[in-house]
């Protein structure tokens, strides 16, 4: 059974809650996906002065575990402040930590990320850091106290899938005991299946479902892909090889 910080997780698909056509569609898609954890942004979605109460109530009403995130934060201070607010609003020590370092690719700032992770872990937060697939950054985050890592597949919302399968495989091999979640860049169910086949513990996605023509149907597709990928991983797939090997023995057939 997969566990994040000691909490058992029943689904290997985690969903973001932004960009859906309506909260009603969000709620239907979440149900169709079978997810047990949703992530919610406290910054962009809520504006200032606690204005997002209605939306947060709606998220809480889904009855799932909430993983608040610091999406849109560009500095350590912003991220830490947002994490504090998240803990208060959702009553959870969980925080998906995003510290954005570059505007065009929205790629994480590894230095700010490690610093913020250290501060938050020391304060008792259970941090889910959004990172690149960089091995050294991963080590620093684990040293800081992170017990889950969330490397990207590709830039947020780009739908490009796993840009660096080699790097992700290496990361998996280096951290066999840390739950690894692909966060960002997933566009198609096949991308999610690929991540699971690599041995990743879960995938987190948002845009691929929220912006699909039929988000509810796409949520079902992702649920199936994640399950298929995980089963494939556990079933120990064959290695690719260069030489063809017939699945039907040649013996007994006529040679021409």
């Amino acid at each position: 059974m997969l566990e994040f910080y000691g909490t058992s997780v029943s689904s290997r698909l985690l969903l973001g809650t932004a960009q859906y056509p309506s909260p009603a569609t969000l709620s239907e898609a979440v149900r169709a996906s079978g997810t047990a954890i949703v992530t919610v942004s406290l910054r962009r979605e809520s504006g200032r002065e606690r204005g997002g109460q209605d939306f947060w109530a709606l998220i809480k009403g889904l009855g799932l575990r909430v993983l608040p995130n610091t999406a849109g934060c560009h500095s350590v201070r912003e991220a830490v402040t947002t994490a504090h607010m998240a803990r208060e609003v959702f009553g959870t020590p969980w925080i998906k930590l995003e510290v954005i370092g570059e505007q065009d690719t929205l790629q994480p700032d590894p230095f700010g990320l490690v610093e913020a992770a250290r501060i938050l872990c020391d304060e008792g937060f259970e941090v889910f850091p959004y990172m690149t697939e960089d091995l050294v950054v991963a080590e620093r985050l684990v040293e800081a106290g992170c017990k889950v890592l969330m490397p990207w597949g590709a830039p947020i919302g780009s739908g490009r899938g796993l840009n660096n399968a080699y790097g992700l495989r290496t990361l998996r091999a280096h951290f066999p005991d840390i739950p690894l979640v692909i966060d960002a860049g997933i566009g198609l169910p096949s991308h999610a299946a690929e991540a699971m086949e690599l041995g990743y513990d879960a995938v987190l996605l948002n845009t691929a479902i929220a912006k699909a023509g039929d988000p509810v149907m796409m949520a079902q597709a992702f649920a199936k892909a994640v399950e298929a990928g995980r089963l494939a991983y556990e079933a120990d797939p064959i290695e690719a090889r260069d030489m063809a090997a017939p699945s039907t023995p040649l013996m007994g057939k006529a040679f021409l």
């Binding site: 809520s46 204005g51 939306f55």
Partner: peptide
């Protein structure tokens, strides 16, 4: 489009 009802001035 922001899921909030509290803003009074543009950010």
């Amino acid at each position: 489009m922001i899921e909030s009802d509290a803003s009074r001035r543009i950010s």
